[in-house]
Amino acid sequence: MTPPSDPNLQAIVIGASAGAVEALSIILPALSQKFPLPIMVVVHIPPDRTSIIADLFREKCNLPVAEAEDKEPIRPGTIYFAPPGYHLLVEMDRTLSLSNDEPVFFSRPSVDVLFESAADAYGPALLAIVLTGANQDGAYGVKSVADAGGSAIIQSPAGAYATAMPAAAITACPSARVLALADIALYLRSLEKV
């Protein structure tokens, strides 16, 4: 249960499914404009193509919020959401890329796809966070992050709206820290000071 070595963190990835909006609403609006790291977020939403989630959080957050565009260079202190219907990936040169590849666990965007590619690009400098959800997307991804030397936080299933996703992530990655939402928000805020 080693805490991540904060000064070395360069990016954060978050995955959430059922109950995502409520959970993210506790974490993301808590961050101030001083938050130094980029945050890439995958939320499972039906691909009806009207991407309201980025708009929703733009209203609530102090940090700039964007729907990720293909080949966009990653900027610090910015929150990126995967567009519905596309996988979001991080390239080795730390730009974002999108893909239409087949869904993973019926999900596109998929948490695993984001996490695995970000693990390749950031290695030990990555923090992955798995939140509430009713499937097992993210379990393989969070393990990849840990295998590459990165750190992981999983929402405590006890307080989660849907438990399957955090529970599967804990099984796949026993070294992850398991925290309640409020404590995840507290921890992220502590990163603003380094």
Binding site: H87, L89, E91, M92, D101, S117, D120
Partner: peptide, 9 residues
């Protein structure tokens, strides 16, 4: 091709 997704495929 974009590396991250070609690697997956």
């Amino acid at each position: 091709y974009a590396q991250a997704s070609i690697k997956r495929r």
